[in-house]
Structures are given as structure tokens and as C-alpha cells.
């Protein structure tokens, strides 16, 4: 299906590194549904709440005392820009979940400011996800989710919740903020899962 657009030739023709429908940018655009929360590290905490109500908690000092790692990943935003080879520093979710007793299949990420996004728990482990606090060697700017954001680069960037404050684990799949507003529940850029039903 689909008709040719009269007079359109196209010129970007993104490379093989890009998922379908994406274009390359060297800038770092921002998408947020509300004002940028300004959270001081001393007021920040991160919690993991299990399906049985158990809570693990880290304040900024405890979080910074965890082993961290350098991460270089490509980012793909559902609004169609992709940015390749971005450099981050953060704590692996494997580290944060190491002592958490859970049999849950799903997680809801919660952010300062009220944002939520849902992910399968299996997408947050095995070296696929981090809580990142540095970008390009600098403390993460509030516009980009600082002091700390989730980083799940194999999914569209809305899954990498900015200003993250915790995960709530669950046996059932609930939908987060954009997922409720018509976006895909999983969001694999390589399958172009932008909107519900894609």
C-alpha cells in the first residue's frame, strides 16, 4: 500500500545503524510532558518495591557508593531522532536488584513529577538497563532527567524515565503515562513499535 508522494525524492536515507523510520541527529532534543522537576541530590532517593510490598531504598550517598559503570549506547526516540554512541555513567539495575526477592514479571518506573512507564522486568536485567547520573562526563542536567534517570537504550527513549525515583514490581502488566495515551506497551525501535497495535 502507499502512494508515491508527487515531487518527493528524499535525501537523508539513514544508515544501517538506524532502526526503521529514524533519522540521525547530533543534538540532544528533549521531550517531557510537564515542567522540569529540579531535584537536589540530597533530596533524591530511589526505591524498589516488590509485589509483596518489600521496599529497598537508596539515598544519594548510598546510591553513589554502589559500583558504577561507563555505558556507551545508541538512543532512539519515538519522535524519530536517533543519537548514536552516547556516553553515560550509571549503576546497573542488576546491582540495584541483586538483593531484591521477587518473582514479578513487570515493573512500573515512577519519576519525580509523576511520570510513569511500564517495562517487563526481564528488560531491566542482564546488563540492559541502568540508573544513569552522568552524561558525557558531566552530572546529568535536569532537562535530561538529572539527577538520575533510567536508561534502557534497547527500547524507545520514553521508557528511559527521567527523574526516576523508583520501580514498583508487579505480577500484572499495567500501562504507564505515554502507554495509556496511545503509545506502544513495549516500544522496540527495531520493530517500530511506536503506537498501540504497531
Amino acid at each position: 500500500m502507499g502512494s508515491v508522494s508527487p515531487g518527493f525524492t528524499g535525501r537523508r536515507r539513514g544508515g544501517k545503524d538506524l532502526p526503521p523510520g529514524q533519522y540521525l541527529t547530533h543534538d540532544f532534543p528533549v521531550l517531557s510532558a510537564g515542567p522540569t522537576p529540579h531535584i537536589l541530590p540530597e533530596h533524591w532517593e530511589f526505591t524498589v518495591t516488590t509485589e509483596t510490598g518489600g521496599v529497598s531504598r537508596w539515598d544519594w550517598a548510598a546510591f553513589m557508593a554502589l559500583p558504577s559503570e561507563d555505558i556507551t549506547k545508541d538512543l532512539h526516540c519515538v519522535t524519530r531522532w536517533s543519537k548514536l554512541g552516547t556516553d553515560w555513567r550509571g549503576v546497573s539495575l542488576d546491582t540495584l536488584l541483586a538483593d531484591v526477592e521477587t518473582g514479578a514479571d513487570y515493573a512500573m518506573a515512577h519519576s519525580y513529577g509523576g511520570y510513569t512507564t511500564n517495562l517487563p522486568l526481564e528488560d531491566l536485567v542482564d546488563g540492559q538497563a541502568w540508573v544513569a547520573y552522568e552524561y558525557d562526563g558531566e552530572p546529568l542536567h535536569p532537562e535530561h532527567g538529572g539527577p538520575a534517570r533510567l536508561l534502557v537504550p534497547h527500547l524507545y527513549l520514553w521508557k528511559s524515565a527521567k527523574w526516576v525515583r523508583g520501580l514498583v514490581l508487579s505480577d500484572t502488566e499495567d500501562l504507564g503515562f505515554w502507554e495509556t495515551a496511545g503509545y506502544h506497551e513495549y516500544g522496540d525501535p527495531w520493530k517500530e513499535q511506536r503506537y498501540a497495535g504497531d
Binding site: P29, S32, G34, P35, Y135, E143
Partner: peptide, 27 residues
């Protein structure tokens, strides 16, 4: 604008935003 609104006492939950384009500076 969103920062000015919050500083003026507006409830951030009642301020809805849509942004486009570059950030306008290195971040």
C-alpha cells in the same frame, strides 16, 4: 516558561508541555 510558572506558584501537575527542536545549547 514552565520554570517561571512553577516559580510563580503554579501546580506543576496543571502545566502541560510540548517541546520541539534542539535544546539550544550543549548539555
Amino acid at each position: 516558561v514552565a520554570d517561571l510558572l512553577v516559580a510563580a506558584g503554579h501546580d506543576p501537575a496543571r502545566v502541560r508541555t510540548e517541546r520541539f527542536g534542539p535544546t539550544g545549547g550543549p548539555r
